[in-house]
Structures are given as structure tokens and as C-alpha cells.
Design a protein around this nucleic acid. Structure first.
Length: 304
DNA sequence: AATCGACCCTGCTCGC
DNA sequence: TGCGAGCAGGGTCGAT
């Protein structure tokens, strides 16, 4: 559910409300929340209790809290992925428990950090930081070390990301969602960026010019910047920031979720089609669908 | 090696 | 009003 802007909203909230606080009492009740932790929920509790949260970092949709000021390779951090429905909430620790509460950490200021996740695709793990492999200088948690820079990262280079995308051979939307090529983009912002660029998501990457791919990435950055300014996109109460407030960007979406409604640019009704077990939304007027893929020609086949 | 579909969950909305 | 079908923003895994 949450894509880069939503995760960034959460990160900022954590920076304000949790960084500097000690985790005095930790409880992890959700088995699925801890499924990536080799030692299970107990191990998370043991590793976090008593630690001081010193930083709130993010790359793409991955979020992590650094601990005790240790940001060297091998230092532990709490890696959080929100999945489709995860929330990191900060509430008064006397507030009543809510449905789908899977983990909580009492802070030394009377508040409590809560992980609430209806669909349980999200999770917490305490993992070591890996050696930095890119130029950004930020150490990434080991399980997230393969995640590419996102468009908000100062180290992000649209041209080289576009080259990596064009080096692959499949539909361009599939590649926009591949977090090892460019991170942070999910189903909503992929559709929005493709619409802004006038490119159909089923176009093959190789049949799309480098310039057009760069344009799609630039639009992805722009649409996510717009969303961030509005506090993120939210369709309902599922997505909230650390204080429980929803974003308002859904009012500004141009194609996502607008099947049958007129395209804001040309008036053609927006179409929704199945794609990768999800929905893709596009304007047939502005984003002409590619011709059905031809069988490889004799000439193509002869090139080995 | 790269690509692609299946799958993991719960809850809400819509049409019958 | 009740009920099943369809849908939802995520990543990972195994088969090909």
C-alpha cells in the first residue's frame, strides 16, 4: 500500500516523535510481523529492549531505525516494511489496544510506538547494517542492500536508472515496480508517472527510447513530490502517518482508480486492465497501447 | 540468468 | 438483509 511518499511521511513522524527516545518495554505479539526474524518475536524483544533510537532512515519503501548512535557496518537497526497496510503509530501508552496491533514499544516519554497491520504483509526485523556499496554514504540494512536508490535520493541518477531499465526486456511498468532498478515506485505512482509521460505501461522497455524512460522517471519523482507535499495518498483509514492522520493526495490522482472517468488531458475514458495480479489504469488516447507482441522475426532470431 | 505467475492475509464494497 | 465475488497501495518464491 504505502509507496515512497507515504513511507517518507512516516519516517518524518518517527524522526520527530521517536528519535532520541529509549525503548523501555517492547512486546511483539504478531508471529507474521516477526516472520523474517530467525529467532522470532522473542529475539526482536531481546535485541530492542533498552536501546535508544538514534535515527530514522529510508530507502524506497524500506524504513529503519538506527540504535544507540551506531551507524557502522554490523550495527543493529530495526528494519520496518509497511507492506500493504502497515502503520507506525505513536500514541499515549495508556491508549486502549486496537485491532491488528502486532508490536509495541513503550518509550521513555510516556508514549508508545505501535505497529498496526491489517493484512500482515509488513514486518519488523532487527538486522545488521551492511557496508555501503553506493556513493550515498548511508549504510543500508543487510536485507535491503539490494534496493536501488529512489528518486528522492541525492545519489539517484535518472539516466543510469533508465539505462538499467532499458537493459532489461519486459513491459516498462513491470520494471518501474522492480525495486532493484529504481525503488519507491508502487502501483499508484507507476500509473500516474506513465500517464504524465504519455507512455503505456505494457510498452517493452527495449522499444522505449532512453529519453522516454528518463521522462517517465522524472515524472515519477515529480508526482511523488506532489504527493509528499499533500501528506501522501490515502484511500481510507488504512494509511495514516505516525499520528493517525491520512493524506489527501488521492484527490489529485489523474488516472489511478479513475476507470471510466474522462482523462483530464483528452477526455477519453480511463481504462483499467489486469496486470501482474493488480490493476493498471491508463488513458487509451494519451497512452496508446502497444501492438500485440509479434513473434520474433527471422532477423531477430538470427542474432545470437 | 531473466522472466513471470502464484501466493501470502484481512476487510471492505458492490451486485445479485 | 445476506452472501459471494472482486478488489486493495507490498514483496518473495519457485517454475520455466
Amino acid at each position: 500500500m504505502p509507496e515512497l511518499p507515504e513511507v517518507e511521511v512516516v519516517r518524518r513522524g518517527l524522526e520527530t516523535h521517536v528519535v532520541g527516545r529509549r525503548l523501555v518495554d517492547v512486546e511483539v505479539t504478531g508471529a507474521r510481523t516477526a516472520r523474517r526474524q530467525p529467532g522470532g518475536p522473542e529475539e526482536i524483544v531481546a535485541l530492542l529492549t533498552g536501546r535508544v533510537v538514534s535515527g530514522a532512515r529510508r530507502r524506497g519503501k524500506y524504513l529503519w531505525l538506527t540504535l544507540d548512535g551506531d551507524e557502522t557496518p554490523g550495527s543493529d537497526c530495526l528494519l520496518v516494511h509497511l507492506g500493504m497496510s502497515g502503520q507506525m503509530l505513536v500514541t499515549d501508552s495508556r491508549a486502549p489496544a486496537v485491532r491488528h496491533l502486532h508490536a509495541r514499544a513503550a518509550l521513555d516519554d510516556g508514549n508508545e510506538l505501535r505497529f498496526v497491520d491489517q493484512r500482515t504483509f509488513g514486518g519488523w526485523t532487527v538486522v545488521p547494517l551492511a557496508d555501503a556499496l553506493d556513493g550515498s554514504g548511508t549504510l543500508l540494512p543487510a536485507p535491503a542492500a539490494h534496493i536501488a536508490a529512489d528518486p528522492f535520493d541525492p545519489a539517484f541518477d535518472a539516466r543510469s536508472a533508465a539505462r538499467r531499465i532499458r537493459g532489461r526486456d519486459t513491459e516498462i511498468k513491470r520494471l518501474l515496480l522492480d525495486q532493484t532498478l529504481v525503488s519507491g515506485i508502487g502501483n499508484i505512482y507507476a500509473d500516474e508517472a506513465l500517464w504524465r509521460a504519455g507512455v503505456h505501461g505494457r510498452r517493452r522497455s527495449g522499444a522505449t527510447t532512453l529519453t522516454a524512460v528518463i521522462e517517465v522517471l522524472d515524472h515519477a519523482r515529480d508526482v511523488m513530490t506532489d504527493a509528499l507535499e499533500e501528506g501522501g495518498t490515502s484511500f481510507d483509514a488504512l494509511y495514516v502517518d505516525v499520528n493517525g492522520a491520512s493524506g489527501y493526495f488521492d484527490r489529485a490522482l489523474d488516472v489511478y482508480g479513475r476507470a471510466g472517468l474522462p482523462c483530464a488531458r483528452c477526455g477519453t475514458p480511463v481504462v483499467r486492465e489486469d496486470f501482474m495480479n493488480r490493476g493498471s489504469h491508463f488513458c487509451p488516447g494519451c497512452q496508446p497501447p502497444p501492438r500485440r507482441r509479434k513473434a520474433p522475426s527471422r532477423r531477430t532470431r538470427s542474432v545470437r
